[in-house]
Design a protein around this nucleic acid. Structure first.
Length: 499
DNA sequence: GCGGTGGGCGCG
DNA sequence: AAAGCGCGCCCACCGC
């Protein structure tokens, strides 16, 4: 179907169920990571499409390759000057048709399953609501944080000791606060369960079926190519990058994402991609060696930092190491580590100090990155994608906390952004490889470090090695990329497979 | 009825 | 003084 047809349908009735490819805002130029519309707004280019001045048109009106390239004529010198030309021509533009194909393909949804799940959630929610009102002593809206706060801290008189207040002045009722209140009153457990179920029901179980396209019978997300500051994609309407997996009940939602008859879902995800990138960029010997030996990286970190043999690492030690391995790439402090692990602040500080002593080049990466952000004004990914930090300039009057936050973003941006670069290359190459071989398999979802493909059963054996080698070969890291794959009839019940 | 904001929470 | 990055969506609440 042609784009103009879809746009016409959408213009006639914007609320209609059409295939509205919101990826039509598809011109990520990579220039300072700003959407094309921002640049146009500054009057750098006065371009019209079908007689409409783009500056006043919605981003959707940018859906014309011709227009995009005419606009680029104006921006080309800047792309060259900032060394973004190859990223633009070799990655972002070739990605556009790949994303369009994924959006068009969509994914099948078991609506009947979700309807049944909705009924069961409704029943349980009603029971919980009754019990909660009973225990509190009067009926109120459990979904209102203000009313809930009053119920807990005024009516029931639970201790508000150390509970942070929100901007609007009432005590926070966040999950971390409720967890701490758990022993104080039996109602807390019920509220936590109510929260979890209400979230699942409203955000996924009830919302997803409404977005099934009447024509295709499938859900078609939009992959926004210009929606993040790091180079990642985002997904919306519906967001299929935040489907539950961490709790048993939540992950049941994944059962609703099914392969078409005669097909299978193949999920392929990069193992520890951000830590491998950190190892590559920092060139830290210990980290590189652990990956080259193919070790369980969290166990390896625990062994190294705590000074025990890797086979003596307990679950508890590994869990701590996992927290710090992730935290490092976000610029986490001792306070933050303590908050998340139950360690005292002193212990957490000491642990981080030890970590940096054992992985000195990681420490150096952190310091170098902060220096670059301050001195050159930006940091960059493996492919040269930039993120700017005006707050960190030496003449900046920004508050300390603002600068500290910017530093954490600067530490994370090259890592998260490089991972985005890599999976984008993989997507382009895989799309082409499948086409070249005349295979009917195609990507349907991207979840930052994971690709989901819908594969005709007969193609599975051919597609598995192709996916694995294409993803692993997307970029050569000194800590080599590793891809794990799973196959199943739906996104929940998947079995690990080898290529 | 609509749009914006805040609190909260799902994912990587 | 703040205290781990990046997203999008739900509901409540508020002002218009």
């Amino acid at each position: 179907m042609a784009f103009d047809t879809m746009i016409a349908e959408w213009l006639i009735n914007p609320a209609s169920h059409n295939l509205g490819l919101k990826n039509l805002a598809w011109a990520r130029l990579g220039v300072e990571m700003k959407p094309i519309t921002d640049l146009i707004g500054k009057g750098k280019a006065q371009i019209t499409m079908a007689g409409v001045p783009i500056a006043q048109a919605t981003p959707y009106a940018c859906a014309d390759v011709d227009m995009t390239y005419r606009l680029v004529k104006v921006l080309e010198p800047e792309l060259h000057e900032k060394k973004l030309w190859l990223l633009f021509t070799e990655v972002e533009m070739p990605l556009v048709p790949v994303l369009s194909a994924m959006e068009m393909r969509g994914v099948a949804l078991d609506v009947e399953f979700l309807r049944e799940m909705s009924r069961q959630l409704h029943e349980r929610l009603m029971a919980l609501e009754r019990e909660i009102h009973e225990l509190v002593g009067y009926p109120f809206n459990i979904g209102s944080t203000q009313q809930l706060s009053d119920a807990l801290f005024i009516k029931l008189g639970l201790s508000a000791q150390g509970v942070p207040k929100t901007k609007s002045g009432h005590y926070s009722t966040s999950a971390s606060v409720l967890e701490r209140l758990r022993g104080q009153h039996p109602v807390i457990d019920l509220i936590l369960e109510h929260r979890e179920l209400a979230k699942l029901k409203s955000t996924y179980v009830d919302a997803l079926p409404k977005l099934v396209n009447k024509r295709t019978g499938r859900v078609h997300t939009s992959f926004n190519q210009t929606g993040t500051v790091t180079g990642r994609l985002s997904s919306s309407d519906p967001n299929l990058q935040n489907i539950p997996i961490r709790t048993e009940l939540g992950r049941q939602v994944r059962r609703a994402f099914i392969a078409a008859p005669g097909h299978l879902l193949l999920s392929a995800d990069y193992s520890q991609v951000e830590l491998r990138i950190l190892a590559h960029i920092s060139q830290d010997e210990g980290l590189l060696a652990a990956f080259k030996r193919g070790e369980d990286i969290h166990a390896s970190t625990a062994a190294t930092v705590l000074g025990v043999p890797i086979e003596k690492v307990t679950r508890e030690m590994r869990r701590l190491a996992k927290t710090i391995n992730f935290g490092i790439t976000y610029g986490m402090s001792g306070y933050g580590l303590a908050q998340r692990t139950g360690l005292s602040q002193e212990e957490a500080d000491r642990f981080i100090k030890n970590y940096f002593a054992k992985y000195p080049r990681v420490k150096k990466y952190v310091e170098e990155t902060k220096r670059k952000a301050r001195e050159q004004g930006y940091v960059e990914t493996l492919l040269g994608r930039r993120r700017y930090f005006p707050e960190l300039a030496s003449d900046s009057k920004a508050h300390y906390s603002v600068k500290a936050a910017a530093e954490r973003m600067a530490i994370n941006a090259p890592i998260q952004g490089s991972a985005a670069d890599i999976i984008k290359i993989a997507m382009i190459n895989l799309h082409r490889a499948l086409k070249e071989r005349g295979l009917a398999s195609s990507m349907t979802l991207q979840v930052h470090d994971e690709l989901v493909l819908e594969v005709p059963e007969g193609e599975l054996e051919a597609v598995k090695p192709l996916v694995k080698s294409t993803m692993e070969g997307a970029f050569e890291l000194d800590a080599p990329l590793k891809v794990d794959m799973k196959v199943g009839r739906n996104w929940l019940e998947m079995e690990p497979v080898e290529a």
